[in-house]
């Protein structure tokens, strides 16, 4: 260390009585700022993680062996199947309805637009549990479902409670709820495709339905995918409220087991594990779909290693 630098380190910004030149600065050793948090935070984090794991594994109430026994229990698996079925059917029906409602909200006809808006307002406004219970009790509102012409003897008359089982109620409630939220996702995704894209399609002689199918829809899907995946994840978990109307889903099955055996925590853990597995699978599906619809958004990456290889091959040949 020369005199100039040691003078500077002592807090003196001048060397002797002159301002350091560029050459002086270039010669000076560089001391990086110490980032204390980068060393301490991981240590604290590791301690917290270890404590959590130890308290979790060491807690007798968890009864890991019981968890293992029930994870693939037939009743639990049946419940899981019911949960998946409810979620998939509700999402599928909900999405179709969502597209219809979105189309209504984008309509040029005021009353159609208004109907779409009221639909969204109603089914987004009523809490899902309330919606489910109302659907469950729809028989009180309409005791019979009648097919026929007004003022004539009905062709078919069925008791609502025979026709609509609790699981159908659940699907209806979830679908309507999903339709309300999903329609907003679909509508905003379609609206976010720039008008220029539509005009370019029209300018090469496409009809508006072709413009929609070939241009607006695929681009809108790219935007809608993560949002709809979010909806689907939420829907999957929300189906657990069907336990309230005694539909034997994952949660209800676990509850009926622990009401016999009182192994409450282990069974709730089984339920938790299965929901986490379902959500993990959905997340994988989501990233696959995002890649598929988003091919045009990834700048083509040229792998520098492969490029080099190709060159060296070329020179070897």
């Amino acid at each position: 260390m020369d005199a100039a630098t040691s003078a500077l380190m002592a807090g003196d910004t001048k060397i002797g009585n002159r301002v350091p030149t560029a050459e002086d600065l270039l010669r000076m050793p560089v001391h990086r700022r110490r980032r204390l948090a980068r060393r301490t935070v991981p240590i604290v984090a590791l301690v917290v993680i270890a404590a959590t794991v130890v308290s979790f594994l060491g807690n007798e109430a968890l009864e890991w062996s019981t968890v293992g026994r029930y994870l693939f229990d037939q009743q639990i698996l049946d419940g899981l199947g019911m949960t998946v079925t409810l979620a998939v059917i509700s999402m599928a029906v909900g999405l179709v309805l969502a597209c219809i409602v979105a189309a209504m909200r984008l309509s040029g006809i005021l009353i159609v637009r208004g109907m779409g808006a009221v639909f969204v307002w109603f089914f987004r406004g009523v809490p899902l549990l309330v919606l489910l219970v109302v659907t469950f009790n729809i028989g009180l509102l309409y005791p019979n479902i009648v097919v026929g012409l007004p003022f004539y003897e009905p062709l078919v008359s069925l008791r609502t409670s025979d026709l609509i089982s609790p699981r159908v109620c659940a699907v209806v409630a979830f679908s309507l709820y999903e339709a309300a939220y999903g329609s907003e996702v679909v509508r905003s995704s379609l609206m976010s495709v720039p008008t220029g894209q539509r005009e370019a399609g029209a300018a090469i002689g496409m009809t508006s339905s072709k413009v929609f199918r070939r241009i607006v829809f695929p681009q809108g899907m790219r935007i809608a995918t993560p949002l709809l995946a979010n909806q689907f994840i939420q829907m999957t978990k929300n189906t657990s409220i069907v336990a309230y109307i005694a539909v034997p889903d994952l949660l209800y099955s676990a509850q009926s087991v622990y009401s016999r055996t009182f192994e409450i925590i282990p069974l709730l853990l089984v339920v938790t594990i299965w929901y986490l597995v379902l959500v993990a699978l959905l997340t994988i599906a989501q990233s696959y779909l995002e890649r598929r619809f988003g091919a045009h958004e990834r700048p083509r990456r040229t792998n520098p290693l492969r490029k080099q290889k190709a060159i060296s091959h070329g020179s070897a040949a």
Binding site: G196, A200, A202, G205, S208, F293
Partner: peptide, 26 residues
């Protein structure tokens, strides 16, 4: 009809200020 207008548009080609290439197509 809209279909007829689409057919009529085939006799003109248009180049836009903002290019408007279909973003999801090569």
């Amino acid at each position: 009809s809209e279909r007829d207008i689409a057919r009529q548009r085939r006799s003109t080609g248009m180049v836009f200020q903002q290019f408007n290439l279909f973003a999801h197509r090569t």
